[in-house]
Simulated assay, not measured.
Amino acid sequence: MRMIWLALAIWGAIHPMYYFIQWFQANGWDIMAMVDAWHANAASSGLVWDLTIAAVTLTIWIVVEVVQTRAWIRLLAIPATFCIGVSCGLPLYLYFRSAPKT
């Protein structure tokens, strides 16, 4: 499963970034304009909130487990979640979490 988690993290990084970069190239490199686009209608706003709540939940889970395990490398899943998306951060965290115990 560990390699599946890694493959999903890579896919979750590349696939969304393809669309983000396309959007930035067409509309300029304005983050606030992208945030406005995310709230273009009720459906997209609902999706933004769904992903935001999932990202916050994942972050709390990561922090709680890292405090318990002292596996600091796992914290890298937090910026992956907020800079790329849950599609990268969650499988990346599962990849780190599934490392063999030493």
Score class of each variant (00 low, 15 high):
residue 90 L to F: 06
residue 12 G to E: 07
residue 41 N to W: 03
residue 38 W to C: 11
residue 23 W to S: 10
residue 75 L to A: 01
residue 41 N to F: 03
residue 48 V to R: 07
residue 72 W to H: 09
residue 84 I to E: 05
residue 80 A to C: 06
residue 100 P to N: 14
residue 17 M to L: 15
residue 44 S to H: 13
residue 64 V to G: 01
residue 48 V to D: 13
residue 7 A to T: 03
residue 91 P to F: 03
residue 30 D to Y: 12
residue 35 V to F: 09
residue 36 D to N: 12
residue 102 T to A: 15
residue 90 L to T: 01
residue 4 I to P: 00
residue 49 W to Q: 05
residue 54 A to L: 13
residue 17 M to W: 07
residue 45 S to P: 00
residue 93 Y to V: 01
residue 38 W to D: 09
residue 17 M to P: 03
residue 30 D to H: 13
residue 68 Q to L: 13
residue 43 A to P: 00
residue 21 I to N: 06
residue 36 D to M: 11
residue 48 V to E: 13
residue 7 A to D: 02
residue 25 Q to L: 06
residue 3 M to W: 12
residue 69 T to I: 02
residue 90 L to H: 01
residue 32 M to H: 14
residue 63 V to W: 04
residue 64 V to Q: 11
residue 64 V to Y: 12
residue 16 P to R: 03
residue 86 V to F: 11
residue 6 L to P: 01
residue 55 A to R: 08
residue 90 L to R: 02
residue 81 T to H: 04
residue 52 T to E: 02
residue 5 W to Y: 15
residue 38 W to Y: 14
residue 33 A to N: 13
residue 41 N to V: 04
residue 94 L to C: 14
residue 30 D to G: 05
residue 22 Q to L: 15
residue 5 W to G: 00
residue 56 V to K: 07
residue 9 A to I: 05
residue 20 F to S: 12
residue 71 A to P: 00
residue 101 K to T: 11
residue 13 A to T: 14
residue 62 I to D: 09
residue 83 C to P: 03
residue 91 P to S: 04
residue 63 V to P: 06
residue 4 I to Y: 01
residue 60 I to W: 13
residue 64 V to D: 09
residue 70 R to H: 12
residue 56 V to C: 11
residue 49 W to C: 02
residue 61 W to Q: 04
residue 4 I to Q: 01
residue 83 C to D: 02
residue 36 D to W: 05
residue 51 L to F: 10
residue 98 S to Y: 00
residue 41 N to I: 04
residue 83 C to W: 11
residue 97 R to M: 07
residue 34 M to A: 12
residue 85 G to V: 03
residue 67 V to H: 11
residue 10 I to D: 02
residue 67 V to R: 15
residue 91 P to H: 06
residue 66 V to K: 06
residue 46 G to F: 13
residue 44 S to M: 15
residue 8 L to A: 09
residue 80 A to L: 14
residue 33 A to T: 12
